[in-house]
């Protein structure tokens, strides 16, 4: 029997790879990032080498985080696909889905050693039910 799940995964992988290639040709790359849940916080770290703090734009909603960071320092990297030519990095851009709903207004961010760390408190909601 044909494995449609495999087909769907492969289709998505090829599409993502193609989009990544197009972005890299334009000098725009998706940064490496990591999401951890520690206690009542979601901690997202994003690797942004070559960026200054002032050039980071960060937006949060209840369930996602968007980062756009201009890279003013000239960083040349080998574009791995199609031609293998060198490209110059212009911008990092990523929209990251969060695993749980958070309170975006209470988020805190810092930038050190080229790594952006964003701490977002987990949204505690719902109506309290009295136990009788």
């Amino acid at each position: 029997m044909f494995d449609w799940n495999w087909f769907e995964r492969e289709r998505k992988r090829i599409r993502d790879e193609f989009l990544r290639m197009v972005e890299e040709i334009e000098g725009r790359i998706t940064p490496l990032h990591e999401i951890r849940r520690v206690g009542d916080e979601v901690i997202v770290t994003i690797d942004l080498p070559g960026v200054s703090k002032e050039d980071i734009k960060l937006y949060a909603t209840e369930d996602s985080l968007q980062v756009i960071a201009k890279c003013k320092k000239e960083i040349r990297f080998r574009e791995p696909c199609i031609t293998g030519r060198e490209a110059t990095l212009n911008e990092y851009r990523a929209t990251i889905s969060l695993p749980v709903k958070v309170e975006p207004e209470e988020a805190k961010a810092r930038f050190k050693f080229g790594v952006l760390e964003v701490r977002l408190p987990v949204k505690t909601g719902g109506k309290r039910i009295k136990v009788e």
Partner: peptide, 14 residues
Amino acid sequence: KADEIKVSLRELMK
């Protein structure tokens, strides 16, 4: 060269 190294190695890292 840390920044260049980090950008170049991100695919290998993944």
